[in-house]
């Protein structure tokens, strides 16, 4: 899939998928995620972030393209590769970064870490460390929408690795049986940790994994934010109309390792290099902004500066915020009830 080719085809669709302002906002958000993750990687290297840290670099178009079609009150839930989703949901980069450094200013007061962050206010339900668990949970959040008849949709993200977990299919069955408003999104970044998708399943098209329950599915280029957006509009419209679940498979790629401690022996340097050069979602969107929307370099540079400043402020906050006081050890185990 050469960039020139797709760009040529895309020309007519640009106006349909996103306006200039929408694409500009999407590009800004993708860039924010990219710079944020680069900074997180840096802080990890400095020993300021511990444990597991799964970066979203390369996959930005997926969450940004989908988030653009959600409404206030819709919910998002995902796995442990969750920093991008949180930023896209509008969560404060400072609170996210401070959680990574395990500080009181973090979204979970430093008690959740990279994989376990939430914002009830922004409709972000985590941040889940058990592969596939969020699929049942997201189906349940959609169940609550159905129960309350509130018209909201829960977007439930999972990787192609999680797509082989049994509870995913238990959830598909229930969601389809009860017509729950859930959009399932498989982020197929080709490698479940070190296992290439073709070594894990004979299925070529994961978007058809819901077919036996009558769940419509669509495979989408996840490196092109416009295509993601266009497909998401169709998918969300289907789900919001009460038809039940819909499954999107986003073909994407992570430019970094599975986590920070990844020897990357399972793919070649050339493969990664080629994807970075040819399919970078941020570069792709930038090109369209410049060539088709007539956005000036200066305007983009101003956004780059703004993003860089936000990320630096987040990093500063994450280092300045104190560790949680020892009294926090025993809080939030249970909701206190009047005796």
């Amino acid at each position: 899939m050469a960039t020139a080719e797709t760009t040529g085809k895309r020309k007519g669709k640009v106006a349909l998928a996103m306006t200039r302002e929408e694409l500009l906002a999407a590009w800004r958000m993708m860039l924010l995620i990219r710079r944020f993750e680069e900074k997180a990687g840096q802080l990890y290297g400095m020993g300021l972030i511990g444990g597991f840290c799964h970066l979203y670099i390369g996959q930005e178009a997926v969450v940004v393209g989908i988030q653009g079609v959600l409404r206030e009150g819709d919910q998002v839930i995902t796995s442990y590769r969750d920093h991008g989703h949180m930023l896209a949901c509008g969560m404060d980069p400072k609170g996210v970064m401070a959680e990574l450094t395990g500080r009181i200013g973090g979204y979970s007061k430093g008690k959740g870490g990279s994989m376990h962050m939430f914002s009830a206010e922004k409709g972000f339900y985590g941040g889940h460390g058990i592969v596939g668990a969020q699929v049942s949970l997201g189906t349940g959040i959609a169940f609550a929408n159905w129960y309350r008849e509130n018209g909201h949709v829960c977007v439930t993200y999972f990787g192609e690795g999680a797509a082989n977990q049994g509870q995913v299919y238990e959830s598909f069955n229930l969601a389809s049986l009860w017509k729950l408003p859930v959009l399932y999104v498989i982020e197929n970044n080709r490698y479940a940790m070190g296992t290439a998708v073709e070594r894990a399943t004979p299925t070529k098209d994961l978007s058809q994994r819901g077919a036996v329950w009558g769940i419509p599915g669509r495979q989408v280029d996840g490196m092109d934010v416009l295509k993601v957006r266009e497909a998401a509009e169709e998918a969300i419209a289907y789900v919001r109309s009460g038809n039940g679940p819909y499954l999107m498979e986003l073909l994407t790629y992570r430019f970094r390792g599975h986590s920070m401690s990844d020897p990357a022996k399972y793919r070649t340097r050339e493969e990664v290099q080629r994807m970075r050069e040819e399919r970078d979602p941020i570069e792709g969107a930038r090109k369209i902004l410049l060539e088709h929307y007539g956005v000036g370099e200066n305007e983009l540079r101003a956004i780059e500066d703004e993003v860089r400043r936000i990320v630096q402020e987040a990093a500063d906050f994450a280092q300045a915020s104190p560790e949680p006081p020892e009294s926090e050890l025993y809080t939030d185990v249970l909701v206190e009830t009047a005796a």
Binding site: G106, Y107, S108, K109, G110, K111, G112, H116, M117, F118, S119, A120, Y125, G126, G127, T331, D332, V333, L334, V335
Partner: peptide, 9 residues
């Protein structure tokens, strides 16, 4: 999850 969310969820 209550603990991991700092009391939010």
């Amino acid at each position: 999850t209550l603990y991991m969310s700092g009391g939010q969820i």
